[in-house]
């Protein structure tokens, strides 16, 4: 039964759109999908965040390291695909266990294919609804 609530400890949301972040956070909290979330509006910052918190040996800091990332594609500057390229270069065991889900407005098959080629755990078209979260919980 424990598994039904908070299947994830920390979820990192990377999206340049405030409203979209707000909605995703609401959906996660409502469905008790994670203990806490951390939102960043810039892919570069997200890389720095992972670099800072996921390489530590200190358990207290590792708590902040996300076990799941919801990643937008279209962001100014570094986009979601650029992020994945850099993210996949991390060799730490802790980081390689982080699941990355694309969460995007794009339902373009090319984007989906590209994301899959870059090894994402899933591809979700926005908005993140309760139904979609339920599916994720079943899969988790």
């Amino acid at each position: 039964m424990m598994n039904e609530f908070n299947p994830y400890n920390c979820i990192l949301l990377v999206d340049d759109d405030d409203t979209s972040l707000f909605l995703t956070e609401m959906a996660i909290n409502r469905n008790k999908f994670a203990k806490h979330t951390h939102s960043l509006t810039n892919a570069n910052e997200a890389l720095e965040f992972i670099d800072a918190y996921c390489k530590e040996i200190d358990e207290a800091i590792l708590e902040i390291c996300p076990d799941l990332i919801f990643l937008d594609i279209n962001m100014p500057g570094m986009d979601g695909f650029d992020f994945l390229d850099s993210f996949n270069k991390f060799s730490e065991n802790r980081i390689s266990k982080i699941k990355v889900f694309m969460l995007t407005s794009s339902d373009n098959p090319k984007d989906r294919e590209m994301a899959e080629n870059k090894g994402v755990a899933g591809y979700i078209v926005k908005p993140l609804t309760t139904d979609k979260i339920k599916e994720l919980i079943q899969a988790a």
Binding site: D17, L23, S106, K126, P127, T129
Partner: peptide
């Protein structure tokens, strides 16, 4: 078309989510 549809879709998806809320 891709850029246009994306830029239109994102706020509309948000509206859908907000209305649901």
């Amino acid at each position: 078309l891709y850029a246009a549809s994306h830029d239109l879709k994102s706020p509309i998806n948000n509206m859908e989510g907000l209305l649901d809320l």
